[in-house]
Each structure stands twice: as C-alpha cells, then as structure tokens.
Design a protein around this nucleic acid. Structure first.
Lengths: 278, 278
DNA sequence: ATGGAAATGGAATATTTATTCCAAAAATCG
DNA sequence: CGATTTTTGGAATAAATATTCCATTTCCAT
C-alpha cells in the first residue's frame, strides 16, 4: 500500500496556532475522502469544542468512528488527537461563559469598531426577541394563522426594510407547499389583479409606512379579502385595513433594526399555517 | 477515625452551576486545613482552567499532591474530579437543545399551537445571537470591512434562504450611500458583466450551497476581485473563493433557521463599511 | 468486469488519567 | 508528654481514553 493520504504532505509539521490550523484545514479540505471530510466539516464548525472533548465525543458528533478522527488529526500534521487538543487547550481562554461579559468585551475590546457594532446589533436583536416573547398577543396570532390557513393563495408584500421579511415569509410558504406570491414591486408592476376572491394578504410595513403596501392592503380589504398585518403598533395605518394585526416592536440600534423579532414572527406564522393546512 | 472534613456536610449535593460552585467554595473556605486551602485558593483564581486541565496539572499548579485535589473535589460535593470538570466543560459550551425531540413534541402534543412555535423560534434566535457573540472572529470581520470599504461597487448575492439577508444588506448599503448592487437572479440574468475591476463581492450561502452564488464568487475571484463570504462554516465551498470568510452558525428549528445571527452580522458589516467610507 | 490502490470500521492494545487506600506525619487535647 | 484524631503524600489500582493494526469494503482505472 502506498500512502496517498499522508502523502498530502508526508511529514508536514503540526500547526502551532489556531490560525495555522485553520489554514491547514482549508488546504487539505479538497483532497479528503468522504469520512475524513465529515471530520473536517464537524471540526471546522465546532472548533471550540476540541479543547473540552474526547476523541469519542467528537467522533460521535461528526458521525464517524474514532479511528477516522485519529487519521484526520494525523493528516493535519499532528502526531495524534492529544497533540491537536493540546494546541486548543493552550489557546483556550474561556469563551466568556457569561454572555454579558463577552458582549461588554466586544464593545470595548480590541476588535475595533466593527466588533463593537456587531455587539450592539446582537444585543438589539436579543432584546427584540425577548420583548416579542413577552408581549405576544396569542389570540391575534391564532387568528392570523386561521385566516391564512383558510385562504387559497397567500399574497405577501413588504418593501424596503420589510422586504427581507416578506421574502423570507414567501420562501417558507413555498417550502411548506403553501401557494404564495411575493409582491416585490419589480418593474412597478403592482399585480393587484392577482388578488382573487378567497385569497389572503400578509402586509408588512413599519413606520414610515410604505404607501404601496398600505394601498395593496386597502385594495384587498375593499374587495373582501382577509388581510393579516405585520407592523410595529396597533395604531399603525396598516391596522385599519387588517383582519388580524400582529405587532412586533424591534429595538433599533442607530438607524437600523435587527429584524430578529419580525423574522421570528414571520417564520412561526408560516410554519403554523403550513402545518394547519396539512 | 471520625470524618470531620466531609462532615462539613456529609452528603452535600454537587453544585449544578458555576455560580453554585462559587458559593460552595466560599462557604467551605474557612474550615479548610492547609493543603486543601491551597487547592481552594488555586482553583478560585484559575477556575477557567478546570475545563481543560488534568488533575495532575491542577495539583501541580496548586503545589499539592493529586490526592489532595481529589479530596478537595469531594468536599465540594462532587463524586470526584471528573464530575467537577464536567460542570465546567458544559458551562463553557452548553449543549444545544435537542430540537429534533422538541419539534416532535410540538407536532404530537398540545403544542401545535402557533404561540409555542413562536417561542421555539424566539429561543433559536436568541441562542444563535449568543453563539455569534461568543464565536465571532474579530479579525475576519475587520478584514471584511476593510475589503469592502476599499471597493468601488459592492455586489451582493444570496439566494433562497440567504436571499433575505442579501436583500437587507443591499438595503443598508443603499441607506449608507455605499454603491451596491443586489444580484437577485431575476430573469436568470446573472449580471456578471457588472463586475468591474476594483469592485468587491459579498456572497452569502449556506448548506446546501447554491450553485449560482458559488459560481459568481468564483468568477469574481478569478477576475481578481475581492470576495467576502458569509457562510455557515470555514469548510464551506464558498470559503475557497473568498478573501475574507465570516461564519455564522444558526440554530435551526425544524427545517428553518431564524436568520437572526446572520442578519446581525450583515447589518454590522454594512454599517461598519458605510462609516469607514465616511 | 477485474485487479490494484485507497479508505474504512472496529476490535485489540497502549497510554494516560482519575481514584482509592493506607501508612506516616502533624495537629490537637487532656 | 502521650494518646487520639486529623491531615497528608504517595504508591497501587481502576477507569477512561487514545492509538494502532488489520481484515473488509469501497473506489477507480483499465
């Protein structure tokens, strides 16, 4: 037997830092056969577990036998798993088990402005999610689900910053085999002829409310279709045209909102509707 | 021989959290004899090494024989060192919830309720955000920002579930007056002629990776443009074509991901680039 | 299809690491 | 100061863990 695998580099010196480790990993990645690639994938997305796991645990996680993982370590240039683990144990600085500390660290730390910004958005997102959990109007949600579950086609509209939410909602509907149409305003076509009796509309807009979305909701309502509103407050102009109103208060940071809560609401809605339909 | 040491509390239950551990430690501290106090002192100021050290290493650090350290663990209420270490290993990276099981429960039990679904998505989002804060590669983020700040036009591409992220990214770039183009695949036009020297690409894709996005990234790279990858792991096929790789691990619930962390990363990136450009 | 090379899984083994136990050393108390 | 209890260190053992090896399977080129 020749030795093609370690021939990737016969006596490659072991990586001496986590960065070197990452480099090596991406170098060898392409030439790895199935099992070893599984190792690589799992290790790459769970690098932080290496320091505190056993071969058996990691192997189980990657769904390979322990011997495959050993081989993997050796291909990377280590003498075995223990040597690899040593690298990560030395580099280990506790990942700030405490989220608050870590956040503070990011804000003030050496990562500079981008990291601090990220920390702010993470925090905003988390707060938004918490507030959503607390202030959820279950009845309204249930009603919205019932409405959409009973509809023929679901029309989804949201522009500008609501557009990502609308797009994701449409995506999830699609995956759940719910007939849905995303009104995206491309070419200024408004597709309102597409609204048929028996259909329903999900309209998404936040202050300052987009005219186009309000107009579609209003049109739908006047034609007798059900309209589910996803908006920022009960007094939103959108609420006027809606049969069910879902409100989500996002915590903004700077001029931009995290959308976390809005998206959570949207997926939950879509999945609930999808399963209600069977 | 009576048993005064464990008599500190004959069958005290083991601490179940790092906080409980700290409490216990300070409780017993005063009643400890010399060697055991050495253990306590050393452990108290090196709590973070427990997860990644052996008995022998810690004992050496505290300058006591291993058996003293064992006794110390038992006085704290653990059956031995391993049990104590387990606490710290788990606290460091708390096992993610078993969503397969939860989802099953939801479907079967009374929990098919939309509100319960929403709670799960909220939880998934929160975990994703926390994990992003913990695992952020600050250097990669800084590099990505620098890359994009130096570019002429920024091209953004992401399809399917990555599309909402791409759309939001493009929206924020626009608001921050960064020349950006969203490649949305409308009409199967691929717009690759639009890539000009001096431009940069932000490519977003997660397993299973979309061919179109990979192909745009690869094309851009081969023409010498910078490519920033926003993906789920370092071993992603997208990483190959990238000059900077940002990874975000989202906790999935069922088939759908919350996108919270991915979006947080995207906004932070866009805002940082926007302000770097002035 | 067929032979040869490569990759794989798992059982066997080696090594490391945790844990117990007890004889010796300190400490405590009358 | 001697008797008794507590604490200590380290050697012996048990358990967990890493590592190797090889028979079997898979892959690939012809």
């Amino acid at each position: 037997m020749s030795d093609p695998l370690s021939a990737i580099d016969p006596a490659m010196p072991a990586p001496t830092s986590v960065d070197e480790f990452r480099d090596r990993l991406s170098q060898v990645l392409d030439s790895l056969p199935r099992r070893l690639r599984q190792c690589a994938d799992y290790i790459a997305s769970n690098t932080d577990r290496i320091a505190v796991s056993t071969v058996a645990e990691l192997a189980a996680g990657a769904d390979v036998p322990p011997s495959a993982l050993m081989r993997f370590c050796q291909i990377l240039g280590f003498s075995g798993f223990s040597e690899m683990q040593k690298l990560f144990r030395e580099a280990y600085s506790p990942g700030w088990p405490d989220y608050a500390t870590r956040l503070k660290n990011l804000k003030e730390g050496s990562g500079g402005q981008p990291a601090a910004l990220l920390a702010e958005f993470v925090e905003a997102g988390r707060l938004s999610l918490e507030s959503l959990a607390k202030s959820l109007d279950e009845a309204a949600l249930a009603q919205a689900v019932a409405t959409l579950a009973a509809a023929d086609t679901v029309h989804v509209m949201g522009l500008r910053r609501a557009f990502p939410v609308a797009a994701y909602l449409a995506y999830v509907f699609d995956k759940m085999s719910v007939p849905a149409m995303l009104h995206d305003g491309v070419g200024k076509l408004d597709h309102r002829f597409a609204l048929r009796p028996g259909d329903a509309v999900v309209a998404i807009t936040f202050a300052p409310y987009s005219e186009e979305t309000l107009s579609l909701a209003s049109e739908a309502r006047s034609r007798g279709l059900s309209v589910v509103a996803l908006t920022d407050r009960l007094t939103s102009p959108l609420a006027r045209h809606a049969t069910a109103v879902l409100t989500v208060t996002e915590v903004d940071f700077g001029a931009f909102r995290s959308l976390s809560a809005t998206i959570a609401m949207a997926i939950a809605l879509a999945v609930a509707v999808g399963s209600a339909r069977g």
